[in-house]
């Protein structure tokens, strides 16, 4: 019974982790059809922002939940203005340019922080479930992810800004005719997506030893999760993260974590072969 609870907890945690690392990419891709291959490096910057802020005496929660998203959001804003806005509608070119950006950011981080591992300690103690000790910080990650998903949904469906954003993504010419500037809305959406990525980087900072190349371990997973999810931002993200989280955890528990990782990747290949438009291209159509 306890073991089942622990396993369930681990599965939920790995799903939450996938959602967390993919959310920023999903917003930017789902809304704007831009694939940001510098996504992992945005997370890396969020992580460094957190560590630097904590080092400067800021409370760790403030650093993770406010400083990191703001820093990365602003970074995203600058990059959108300087590079991405010239490339809207040119999917492959954006991918290549953001790939260049990712290399550039790795280079800059190496220049500033050096090629060494930095980290901060986990702020939450573990707690027991029956005879097993469970990592308390994992619970925190799950809660943050849940709040984040609800918040994205609330903003997109409940607020005027979300309505305008969704409208612009569907018909930018019509939104423009109604007096909203698509240029500004793209800019703000990219800011929001970057901020979410920064949040992910900040929240994961205590869990990983941060090096300038840390971002590369996330990008592939985030990329796969978002693309397999398909066009709908939230439904796609949740469905593909659940599927991949389940698959990888089942194989991790029954064999080892290496096989778990490979199983995730193979599941992605099979899924895309069967559903070339992603999960929401076939199921949950029209959902958000």
């Amino acid at each position: 019974m306890d073991l089942a609870l622990v396993v369930a907890f681990q599965v939920i945690y790995s799903i939450a982790l996938l959602v967390l690392i993919s959310a920023g990419l999903a917003v930017v891709f789902g809304m704007m059809r831009v694939i940001n291959l510098a996504h992992g490096e945005f997370m890396m910057v969020g992580g460094y922002a957190t560590i630097v802020a904590v080092g400067a005496g800021v409370n760790i929660y403030v650093a993770m939940l406010i400083v990191a998203p703001l820093t990365v959001g602003i970074l995203g804003l600058v990059i959108e203005r300087l590079v991405i806005r010239f490339l809207y509608g040119r999917l492959v070119d954006t991918m290549l340019a953001t790939w260049g950006l990712s290399l550039l950011l790795i280079g800059l981080a190496t220049l500033i922080f050096g090629n060494t591992t930095t980290g901060i300690s986990v702020p939450i103690e573990g707690f027991p479930i029956g005879a097993y000790q469970v990592n308390g910080y994992n619970l925190f990650v799950i809660v943050v992810t849940a709040v984040m998903v609800v918040a994205i949904y609330a903003v997109l469906s409940g607020t005027r800004w979300g309505l305008i954003a969704r409208g612009t993504m569907q018909r930018s010419d019509m939104a423009s005719a109604l007096g909203y500037s698509p240029d500004r809305i793209y800019m703000l959406t990219f800011f929001a997506g970057s901020a979410l990525t920064g949040l992910a980087g900040g929240v994961l900072a205590p869990l990983v030893g941060l090096v300038p190349t840390s971002g590369t371990q996330y990008i592939a997973k985030a990329f796969i999760t978002v693309i397999s999810g398909g066009a709908s931002v939230i439904a796609g993200l949740l469905s593909s993260a659940t599927l991949f989280g389940l698959v990888s955890q089942i194989f991790t528990f029954s064999v080892n974590s290496m096989v778990g990782e490979i199983a995730l990747l193979i599941a992605a290949v099979i899924l895309l072969r069967l559903l070339p438009q992603g999960i929401t291209g076939r199921f949950f159509r029209g959902s958000m």
Binding site: L87, A97, L101, L103, G107, L108, L111
Partner: peptide
């Protein structure tokens, strides 16, 4: 002096923007 990744990244960004 410079990280080679940094330069390569810069070349890629610039060439996509100005020399597609």
């Amino acid at each position: 002096q410079f990280d080679s990744t940094l330069i390569l990244g810069l070349i890629l960004v610039l060439s996509v923007l100005f020399l597609p």
